[in-house]
Amino acid sequence: MKLYVDAKLQSLFAQIAKNNCQNLKPNVKMKVELKFTNYQLSFLNAFIADNLPASVHGEMKDRKSFIFLMNDVSCKLLKKAIEKRQEAKAFKISLKYYEAFALHQFLYLYMDYDNTERYNVTREILGVINQKLA
Results as ranks from 00 to 15, higher is better:
residue 1 M to K: 06
residue 1 M to C: 11
residue 2 K to T: 12
residue 2 K to M: 11
residue 3 L to I: 15
residue 3 L to P: 10
residue 4 Y to K: 13
residue 5 V to H: 08
residue 5 V to C: 11
residue 7 A to Y: 06
residue 7 A to T: 14
residue 7 A to F: 00
residue 8 K to R: 15
residue 9 L to T: 15
residue 11 S to L: 15
residue 14 A to L: 02
residue 15 Q to Y: 05
residue 16 I to H: 01
residue 18 K to C: 04
residue 18 K to H: 11
residue 23 N to F: 13
residue 24 L to V: 00
residue 28 V to Y: 09
residue 30 M to F: 08
residue 30 M to I: 09
residue 31 K to H: 10
residue 32 V to G: 09
residue 33 E to Y: 06
residue 34 L to K: 10
residue 35 K to D: 14
residue 35 K to V: 15
residue 35 K to S: 14
residue 36 F to T: 13
residue 37 T to E: 13
residue 37 T to F: 04
residue 38 N to D: 08
residue 38 N to I: 04
residue 38 N to E: 02
residue 39 Y to M: 14
residue 40 Q to V: 00
residue 41 L to Y: 02
residue 41 L to K: 08
residue 42 S to K: 09
residue 43 F to M: 03
residue 44 L to C: 09
residue 44 L to E: 05
residue 44 L to R: 07
residue 44 L to W: 05
residue 46 A to E: 15
residue 47 F to R: 05
residue 48 I to N: 09
residue 50 D to M: 10
residue 50 D to S: 13
residue 53 P to V: 01
residue 55 S to N: 07
residue 55 S to P: 03
residue 56 V to D: 06
residue 56 V to R: 03
residue 59 E to C: 12
residue 60 M to T: 06
residue 60 M to C: 03
residue 60 M to Y: 03
residue 61 K to Y: 02
residue 63 R to H: 08
residue 64 K to D: 03
residue 66 F to H: 09
residue 66 F to K: 13
residue 66 F to P: 06
residue 68 F to D: 09
residue 69 L to A: 12
residue 71 N to R: 01
residue 71 N to E: 02
residue 72 D to A: 14
residue 72 D to K: 07
residue 73 V to R: 00
residue 73 V to L: 05
residue 73 V to N: 08
residue 75 C to V: 08
residue 75 C to R: 02
residue 75 C to N: 05
residue 76 K to C: 13
residue 77 L to Q: 07
residue 77 L to D: 11
residue 77 L to V: 02
residue 78 L to R: 01
residue 83 E to C: 03
residue 83 E to T: 06
residue 83 E to R: 10
residue 84 K to P: 00
residue 89 K to L: 04
residue 90 A to Q: 10
residue 90 A to R: 04
residue 90 A to W: 09
residue 91 F to M: 06
residue 92 K to H: 10
residue 92 K to C: 10
residue 92 K to V: 03
residue 93 I to N: 10
residue 93 I to P: 11
residue 95 L to R: 10
residue 96 K to C: 11
residue 97 Y to F: 14
residue 98 Y to C: 04
residue 99 E to S: 11
residue 99 E to Y: 10
residue 99 E to V: 07
residue 99 E to G: 01
residue 101 F to N: 01
residue 101 F to M: 11
residue 102 A to W: 00
residue 102 A to D: 07
residue 102 A to I: 08
residue 103 L to A: 00
residue 104 H to N: 15
residue 106 F to V: 06
residue 106 F to Y: 07
residue 106 F to K: 04
residue 110 Y to R: 03
residue 110 Y to N: 10
residue 111 M to N: 09
residue 111 M to C: 02
residue 112 D to M: 00
residue 112 D to Y: 08
residue 113 Y to P: 07
residue 113 Y to A: 13
residue 114 D to I: 02
residue 115 N to L: 01
residue 116 T to L: 14
residue 117 E to I: 15
residue 119 Y to C: 14
residue 119 Y to M: 15
residue 120 N to A: 12
residue 122 T to W: 04
residue 123 R to N: 07
residue 126 L to Y: 06
residue 127 G to Q: 06
residue 127 G to W: 10
residue 127 G to I: 03
residue 128 V to T: 14
residue 129 I to C: 13
residue 129 I to R: 09
residue 129 I to N: 00
residue 130 N to I: 01
residue 132 K to P: 01
residue 133 L to E: 06
